[in-house]
Write a protein that binds this DNA or RNA. Structure first.
Lengths: 168, 168
DNA sequence: ATAAACTTTCAATATATTTTGAAAGTTTAA
DNA sequence: TTAAACTTTCAAAATATATTGAAAGTTTAT
């Protein structure tokens, strides 16, 4: 397989994975494009390369920046903005984990905490079933949350090293 | 907060979380409803309870069964099918991990493996950047895959115990 | 065989999400 | 200032996804 075709496949694969994980396809594709590009790209070049409109490119780049996955750069004496992706895979994983935790896990934890406080008689099967499910899910969600928190602070080699030691 | 309102909130929260994680809202809501229901429910009762159509209820229940989250039951002398959810949270997490691994992670791993085989000169920055990103992501994806595999076989208390021991 | 009781299918419809592109806004150099 | 070079916005259009509901299919008891 030649490089241009391989890049194309990578962009497609990353786009598909993204859309299965709540990040939209274009956003994941722009990210993928920047990941396989040595230097920086302008909005114009991204539009061209992925055949997307100016508005779409602009919004997508802003989203990627708000996720902390892409940064922009001003070159002295130039007016254009140049975009590049952080290419450190561990940083990417941490950044995604951080954002999803904040945007998705935390609001649910807040609701679950409230719901575990609902009172009722343990004789009532309706209440007992509700309470058990909510309490159990809340515990698991808190475990996930703590694990993510640790991951966010961790160094990659230490993290995987510990995981694999643990799993022998 | 009273029980019916709490149930409603739980169904909404689970629905929202589901739709952020690639499971559609209705599917997550039917699952949530079954999680807080002591016994089993018929299609009719689910339609009624969530105000959804017969077709939607039927398809959603089939999906939930294909994910291994819901089972059906025939009562002797009755023609209706009764549905219930496995209420063991650890089983739910494992089942979801198993399905997503199969449906999403594995196809991507297959492509990444191919892409790491693409040859080129390390003098060429285009190739070098492509190769590094693909290789790094492939390694991380494989680490995630191995971790999931271990999780699938593990007992809950052992799993979290080990995780928290590891994180001191 | 028949029909009642149920489940499944799927084309049409509704809803939600993404994308476009032209106009408005901003910045910079002269 | 002005105007060129760029970025941002957002209503309208396109696309993708989910839902409906009626018709077709299936199963079971008689």
């Amino acid at each position: 397989m030649e490089l241009p075709e391989a890049k194309q496949k990578f962009i497609e694969a990353w786009g598909r994975l993204g859309s299965e994980w709540g990040i939209n396809r274009t956003m994941a594709q722009v990210h993928a494009l920047l990941l396989v590009t040595p230097g920086e790209l302008t909005t114009e070049e991204i539009m061209e390369s992925l055949s997307i409109s100016r508005g779409n490119a602009n919004m997508t780049l802003r989203d990627l920046m708000s996720w902390g996955l892409v940064e922009k750069l001003h070159k002295a004496g130039e007016r254009k903005e140049y975009f590049f992706a952080d290419k450190n895979t561990w940083n990417i994983a941490r950044q995604v984990a951080k954002e999803r935790r904040k945007r998705e896990l935390e609001p649910v934890l807040k609701i679950l905490d409230e719901l575990t406080k609902v009172k009722g008689s343990s004789k009532d099967p309706e209440f007992a079933t509700f309470n058990k499910s909510v309490t159990d899910i809340n515990k698991m969600a808190k475990n996930v949350d703590k694990t993510l928190e640790t991951m966010l602070k961790a160094e990659e080699s230490w993290f995987w090293g510990s995981i694999f030691k643990m799993f022998k």
